[in-house]
Amino acid sequence: MYIYKISRQDLTFVNTSDTPKVDTLFINGLRTGDAVLLKEIYSRFFSGIKQMIQTNAGSLDDAKDIFQDALMIIYRQALRPDFTLTVAFYTYLYSVCRKLWLKQLRNRSTKGEVEITETMDIMEEGLLEAITRNEQYKLYQDNFRKLGDDCQKLLRLFMEDRSVKELMALLGYSSESYTKKRKFQCKEKLISLIKEDSRYRDLY
């Protein structure tokens, strides 16, 4: 079992003596994408996650991918207005990484031998939902980037709740009917790309 404790020296980093403040610092670092704090998260926590993954049939590259995915999930969670960190940051990070890794192991059809302590199963339901949401976002965003620049621009503007008239003016299209037609074509193309993606079947 891997147990993490924030040491006295770690705490001096933020000139405070309680863990919640350090954890809030990391959550804020994720919310804002602060370069120094993100690196600090890597410095403090990556080795623990690497150890968990490498002792459970994973490689260093797996650890890197899982760590980054987990931070992305926590970032998205942290932006929700109702988000509250009810456990230590590392406990939360570890739980997300562990869930992600188990999911990937299952996908790879790796047989047995995975022995990870069950004591870290915190926020199980919310976590699974967050992990699924992360995968859905990836599926949609990856395919969105496959569209041509004009379709990306059109759909982005449309999602900003712009009217057809505004879209027409901003994109220099000749008529409202053409703008509508183009919007439909772009969206249809995107939805068909998403549905053809192999990840789609796993997610829906």
Partner: peptide
């Protein structure tokens, strides 16, 4: 889901 994902695409 598409709307949510695209609206978050730039910050993500």
């Amino acid at each position: 889901h598409l709307y949510e994902a695209i609206r978050n695409e730039v910050p993500d």
